[in-house]
Amino acid sequence: MKYTHCPCCLEEITTSDVNSCHLCNATKKESSHSNNYMQILTELDFQIKSNKKVLYDYQEHLIGLQSAIIIAKTNLENTQSELLAIAKTVDVETQYLIERARKVGQLESESKQIQKQISIIKDLDKFKSRKSELNKLILGYKEKYLSLLHLLKKDEIKLMLVFVIICWLFFALIYVKMENLMKKFLKKQIVQI
């Protein structure tokens, strides 16, 4: 390396001899510099050749990987087209089965609703028949009551009249309770529907 100024005092360097160091004026030893220079050149040449070989191997590997990627893409496209074809055939059949299952579920739901309504109607019919029986019984007691009122004029029948009135009140109470129970039952059934 050549300096134009001294690094220590910053004065301009003047050289008179070519075989001496221009900085310290020491005589140059050419043989050791030549050997070092040749050794460095040989090492650099070896490193360049090694790097070229590594680069060539990487380029070959890159070409192989690019070929593998192209093959993988082709296989992927083939598989995707096969899956698409299968999906189209399965899709029509699956849609048909799903539609049928939905209709079956809807019909089952409607059937359950109808069965509930039939059950409610049967219970209502039972309550209506029971109500008519109780009405007949009450009417019978009412007739007896009226006939007893007619006989009330006699003293010995007063005790019997009290008994009949108590019975009539008892059956009227039963009738009211049955009617209330029937109303509650009907409200529950209507809420469930």
Rank of each mutant, 00 (worst) to 15 (best):
Q113M: 06
D45V: 04
I165Y: 00
C21R: 00
Q39T: 09
E133P: 00
T94M: 11
Q59N: 13
G64A: 14
I174D: 01
E156Y: 12
S67A: 10
R100P: 05
L41P: 09
S109K: 10
L76S: 02
Q192E: 15
L23V: 15
N35A: 13
A68S: 13
D123T: 08
F170I: 07
I157W: 10
D155H: 01
M182R: 04
V90C: 03
I166P: 00
P7R: 00
V191W: 12
I165M: 02
F170P: 00
F46W: 13
C24H: 07
Y141S: 11
L149F: 02
V191D: 15
Q106W: 04
C8G: 14
N75E: 08
H150F: 04
A172H: 03
L107W: 06
I120G: 01
L181W: 05
G140Q: 08
E60W: 03
K126W: 03
F46E: 06
D57S: 12
S111R: 07
E133G: 07
A85G: 03
M1P: 01
T89C: 01
L161C: 06
E108L: 08
K136Y: 12
D155C: 04
L76N: 01
L10D: 12
C9A: 02
V104G: 02
T27F: 15
A85S: 08
E30N: 14
K103T: 15
L23H: 11
T15K: 14
F163A: 00
K49Y: 04
W168V: 11
K112Q: 11
A87P: 00
K131A: 08
K49N: 10
E99V: 09
S81I: 07
G105C: 03
Q115G: 06
S111L: 02
K112L: 13
I63M: 01
L159E: 05
R100N: 15
K187I: 15
Y37T: 15
M182S: 13
G105I: 01
L76Q: 05
L62M: 02
T27Y: 15
L23Q: 14
K88I: 04
E143W: 07
T4E: 11
E11H: 09
E60A: 14
K142L: 05
E12K: 05
A87K: 09
I193M: 15
N180W: 05
L23E: 08
N19C: 15
I63Q: 02
F46Q: 14
I69D: 06
L146V: 06
L41H: 03
N180L: 09
H61E: 07
I174C: 00
T79G: 07
V92A: 01
K103D: 15
A101N: 09
I121W: 10
G105W: 00
V191F: 05
S147E: 13
D155K: 11
T15G: 13
T94C: 10
L44C: 14
L65Y: 03
A26K: 10
I118W: 05
Q66L: 04
E82K: 13
M160Q: 14
E143G: 04
I121L: 11
Q106L: 10
T14I: 14
E11I: 08
K116G: 13
C24I: 01
E110F: 05
Q80N: 06
C167A: 02
K144H: 04
A101F: 03
F185K: 04
I69S: 07
I166G: 01
Y175V: 01
I193D: 15
